[in-house]
Design a protein around this nucleic acid. Structure first.
Lengths: 249, 249
DNA sequence: GATTGACTGTGAATAGTTTTGATTATAAAC
DNA sequence: GTTTATAATCAAAACTATTCACAGTCAATC
């Protein structure tokens, strides 16, 4: 058996059970103890699992924390709930726009295997989208150093040539005044993405409500807001004439 | 059987199974072990598959963190020498195009602090460019899963709106026939980049000479070749009417 | 139109590496 | 201290690279 196949088999077993003994692997894979051991050492080096005395155990899901994004994300659970809900709104086979940012990033795992075409302006998103085997396009533009988002005239221009079934966007401010975000250049990009999308969703955790940031993006009614029950009800109320979806937890 | 047919057959088998042993290919294709091996070597060079001990597998979707690139890059030292030399050719304050690929990637450290504006089609390059504080633009387009390069119509279109002082490109084949590369879509992108650049440089280590790949990019005289002294002198000679720079080591 | 020689693609043989499983020594758990 | 797991070693097996020889192909030459 090819060593690469064997390793895949090992990972499969371990993913099912979380922990396995060497003996179980010997039986499952049909290789000698030495070989299994060597494979485990390599897999550990590749950070696919952790070896423990007597066998091996699953590492913390590496897909859930592929980069530094993970560690620095605040309100992660809340964002994940929102992201999961948002992803469910997508019909298989659609073309969607995925805005840069941590909340939209969380959607990626839920977008796999749905025959989607994803266009994004987030450099960070690309690698993860590829890992999940999703067909990915990226718009052009200037790379914003702090965030890895694509912004500027070039970004807006390249967006003009796409049309989306759905757009998913993060926002810093959600208020009656409209959606707002700190960077005017990013605001432009978000605006254009929304204009070119049949349906737009804004993903906003509770910290974003009643906030007004520097750059205006669009009026609130231009998108459906997806938020979590953590959000103060009175704040949601004030926007209630609009379509606001509250994720149940 | 014609070698092209054979390679197609090999790819077909491998696409079905993801991983194949040499023996399976011998049976499926009906050629000798030697021949299959040679085909696999070529197919690997064309980036259609990766060879593994005992057989071959579809290109692996590795996380292409820079560290990963470093480990997997062949002829790294040679490439670094070439890259350093190439970077020195750049006047401070210029706008340059940096093609996706491992050789051009090595240039990045030498491009820092020179007041440059870099446009690239390599997703991998972006993070490193940002780390070195280089002003970076990325062209739009479809993300090629195996390599993270941006290709396709959209990529070519977005390139039309840029003009460069210098373009630095990798190539799989450098021969009297011209520059060639396996993927036609990538060839298009390289072509356009060269067209929009005042001066183009092709970075080629010794393995690339006298090689002809599937897709034609440009005539040899359209770019200055930067190579290393490892390159067989007779091969360089045959191109000597053209500007070829040999990096001293 | 045959002959020659260079060139290419193929398969077989051989020399060189890597991988593997068995064995033995060392270390960790109880 | 006994048992069990891990690490280290080594020869056999499996795989790979290199070399060579053979058969076609092509072009130039006689």
């Amino acid at each position: 058996m090819l060593s690469i196949k064997r390793k895949e088999a090992i990972l499969e077993v371990i993913k099912k059970q979380d922990v396995v003994t060497i003996q179980q692997l010997i039986d499952a894979v049909g290789a000698s103890e030495s070989t299994i051991r060597r494979d485990l050492i390599e897999l550990e080096k590749e950070e696919q699992l952790t070896r423990v005395h007597g066998g091996a155990s699953l590492q913390k899901r590496r897909h859930d924390e592929p980069s530094m994004i993970e560690k620095t994300t605040r309100n992660k659970e809340e964002k994940q709930g929102i992201a999961m809900y948002a992803a469910k709104a997508v019909q298989p086979g659609s073309c969607i726009y995925l805005d840069a940012g941590s909340t939209t990033y969380e959607m990626i795992p839920y977008l796999a295997d749905r025959d989607l075409l994803v266009v994004t302006n987030g450099i960070q998103h690309v690698q993860t989208l590829m890992e999940y085997g999703i067909e990915t396009y990226i718009i052009g533009g200037k790379v914003k150093p702090q965030t890895g988002a694509l912004v500027g005239t070039k970004a807006v221009e390249s967006l003009r040539f796409y049309r989306f079934d759905y757009a998913f966007l993060g926002m810093n401010g959600v208020a009656l005044d409209g959606y707002t975000t700190p960077d005017p250049e990013e605001a432009n990009v978000k605006q254009t993405a929304m204009d070119n999308s049949a349906t737009s969703f804004v993903l906003a955790d509770h910290t974003k409500f009643d906030q007004v940031s520097f750059a205006y993006v669009q009026a609130v009614e231009q998108a459906i807001i997806i938020t979590s029950p953590n959000t103060d009800q009175s704040k949601v109320k004030s926007l209630e004439k609009l379509t606001t979806i509250e994720v149940s937890s």
